[in-house]
Computed example of a mutant assay.
Amino acid sequence: MEPVDLRSGRVLLDQPGPDDAAAMVAALNRPEIERVLTTPWPYGPEHAEDFIGRHVPEGWRTEREFTWALRAPGSPELAGVIGLRTGRPDVGYWTVPASRGRGLCAEAVRLVADWWFARGGAALAWECVAGNVASLGVARAAGFRFTGAAPSHGPYRDGAHPLSWHGVLDPGPRRRHDGWPV
């Protein structure tokens, strides 16, 4: 499948490119990232180049994972990355510090979910390591329903499955759900 750009009045989702590599390295080497993402640590330029040049195109080609760069419309600056893995299916995301707290990531999740559901996709799963209140806030704002705390579905860098918060987003009208931790 060829990559698809998605947009709203607040965000543009397009393909990450070589010009995004330095911003990825800077964002993914922040100390608060190590504990909450499964990306390599430390995250070097070679990781960004492999992600942008191999992983992202291969995901689209095989339809196993759809990945987008998150940007403000009209800006070339990387605000974050969002991906939808189709096997489970689930969604994951991160943002650069300057883009946090502005609702951009929740808007991006809604765009990706709408695109996925329009294609006939099933409910989307979400998880984050317990205590990652930023990710929880995005999932809640995007309309996910909290389903509980349990070990992570996928392994982290060390092979462990840390205690994680889980949620689901069903096709159909979105609303905020009660029952979230914190």
Score class of each variant (00 low, 15 high):
residue 175 R to Y: 06
residue 62 T to F: 02
residue 17 G to W: 13
residue 136 L to R: 15
residue 82 I to P: 03
residue 132 N to Q: 06
residue 116 W to E: 03
residue 42 P to D: 07
residue 54 R to I: 04
residue 39 T to K: 06
residue 50 D to K: 12
residue 129 V to S: 13
residue 61 R to G: 09
residue 20 D to G: 08
residue 109 V to M: 10
residue 173 P to I: 01
residue 70 L to P: 06
residue 77 E to G: 14
residue 115 W to K: 02
residue 56 V to N: 12
residue 166 H to W: 13
residue 169 L to V: 00
residue 163 L to M: 14
residue 173 P to G: 11
residue 106 A to L: 00
residue 32 E to C: 10
residue 125 A to C: 01
residue 85 R to A: 10
residue 87 G to W: 13
residue 168 V to E: 15
residue 179 G to I: 03
residue 97 P to Q: 05
residue 37 L to V: 11
residue 103 G to R: 10
residue 157 R to F: 08
residue 34 E to N: 08
residue 136 L to K: 14
residue 59 G to P: 03
residue 150 A to H: 12
residue 106 A to I: 03
residue 127 E to G: 02
residue 33 I to T: 12
residue 40 P to I: 03
residue 120 G to S: 05
residue 84 L to W: 10
residue 164 S to V: 04
residue 54 R to A: 12
residue 100 R to P: 06
residue 105 C to W: 01
residue 29 N to M: 05
residue 159 G to S: 08
residue 118 A to M: 06
residue 11 V to P: 09
residue 113 A to K: 02
residue 91 V to K: 06
residue 49 E to G: 04
residue 38 T to S: 12
residue 59 G to E: 09
residue 146 F to A: 14
residue 60 W to P: 07
residue 70 L to W: 04
residue 169 L to H: 08
residue 105 C to Q: 10
residue 165 W to A: 11
residue 37 L to K: 02
residue 106 A to P: 00
residue 74 G to L: 08
residue 77 E to I: 04
residue 48 A to C: 07
residue 153 H to P: 00
residue 55 H to L: 14
residue 68 W to N: 08
residue 112 V to E: 02
residue 98 A to D: 10
residue 178 D to E: 15
residue 95 T to Y: 01
residue 77 E to Y: 12
residue 57 P to S: 03
residue 6 L to K: 06
residue 47 H to Q: 09
residue 110 R to V: 06
residue 81 V to Q: 09
residue 155 P to K: 10
residue 85 R to M: 05
residue 82 I to C: 00
residue 28 L to M: 01
residue 130 A to E: 15
residue 134 A to V: 09
residue 119 R to P: 01
residue 12 L to P: 13
residue 173 P to K: 10
residue 80 G to V: 03
residue 25 V to H: 11
residue 13 L to D: 09
residue 32 E to A: 13
residue 83 G to D: 11
residue 119 R to V: 00
residue 118 A to F: 09
residue 44 G to M: 08
residue 153 H to M: 07
residue 62 T to E: 13
residue 29 N to K: 14
residue 82 I to L: 05
residue 167 G to T: 00
residue 84 L to M: 07
residue 16 P to W: 06
residue 110 R to S: 11
residue 50 D to L: 14
residue 144 F to N: 13
residue 163 L to E: 15
residue 59 G to C: 07
